[in-house]
Design a protein around this nucleic acid. Structure first.
Lengths: 171, 171
DNA sequence: ACTTTATGTCAGCCTTGTTGACTTTCCAAG
DNA sequence: CTTGGAAAGTCAACAAGGCTGACATAAAGT
């Protein structure tokens, strides 16, 4: 019920706050919706050929990013139940794309790795997705990319932000 | 197979193209993934209370954006089958959130409107989503917001971009 | 009169999410 | 050494929301 009627035009210090109007926010919401569709479109096509879905892509992506990650760690990144993830991982292991090694320190844990075949599919999928991202970044320019990432980071839940920031070039 | 080994460091005209490295692209991909989760988290919680899902939210959003829109138009925006959309619309009409009026010029068409109850839910949902978007925009600043939108627009499929650009403040 | 378009609907299938219950393995504290 | 609890796997059942295919109806267009 606060600032309803769409025109916070000027802030208290006189900056233009036009970018915070209801209409601008709606535009941002729709941008997310439409862009996410594009973002997933190319991998979805490839996955379909293999009989996999987005859930498989997500698992493959994060196993590739952090080889040897445990099931539990993957669960907290993906935010699904272990039953859901297990179904996906079982398929990937059975099909020989993922290897599940019993932990050495803690033998309850399973450490996940992509096989060569898994890496090949990962490259296929992420190259398709990167191609679109690359084109978008190039057309928009480096400053836009910085803004893109700044806004997205702010949109994440804190726990997701931690996972996101984890993924820096450290291994 | 083109520019594989992650370092297109400098472009032909000498600009820094560091923002186009494989790693930067992967970061962008993960930003989209994690941010989209945050983007949908708040409405998802509200929808659950009403026994609805994201599909209902999307229908409600675009009916609100363009009152009187036809089923066909909604189909092309949402990119689902009429059977899928119909299931959702039927529920919303039965529950009295959406009104479906036979067209006057073309009586085959159904024009869709939110009822007062529908508008109330729409406000609930979009206010939750806007609150997060507003915070993200405010923390990131106007220039970042411009970049955010520029990149997302580039990421859309052309048809989706048209729908996105349609939604300018003209009604 | 015939064709096309817009919509609705029925039936059935798949993926991917959920909960709940149960087992096995195994580290670690008592 | 025993036991509690964490990590993992598995089974069953269910729901949302995608999909395809087939078919019905009304109205518009040719």
């Amino acid at each position: 019920m606060a600032e309803r009627n769409a025109s916070p035009a000027m802030g208290s210090r006189g900056e233009s706050l036009l970018f915070l109007t209801e209409d601008q926010l709606r535009r941002g919401i729709e941008a997310m919706f439409f862009a996410y569709r594009g973002f997933t479109a190319d991998p979805d096509r490839i996955l379909q050929e293999y009989g996999y879905g987005r859930a498989h892509h997500r698992a493959i992506h994060f196993i590739n990013r952090t080889p040897g990650t445990t099931v539990n760690n993957l669960l907290s990144i993906l935010g699904v139940t272990k039953q859901s993830l297990n179904r996906v991982l079982r398929a990937l292991v059975e099909d020989g794309l993922v290897e599940s090694r019993v932990g050495t320190r803690d033998k309850r844990e399973r450490h996940l790795y992509l096989t060569d075949e898994g890496k090949a599919l990962e490259r296929d999928l992420s190259e398709a997705q990167r191609a679109r991202m690359r084109a978008a970044f190039r057309n928009a320019g480096p400053e836009a990319v910085a803004g893109f990432r700044a806004v997205l980071e702010q949109m994440m839940d804190p726990e997701m932000r931690r996972h996101y920031l984890d993924g820096v070039d450290n291994g």
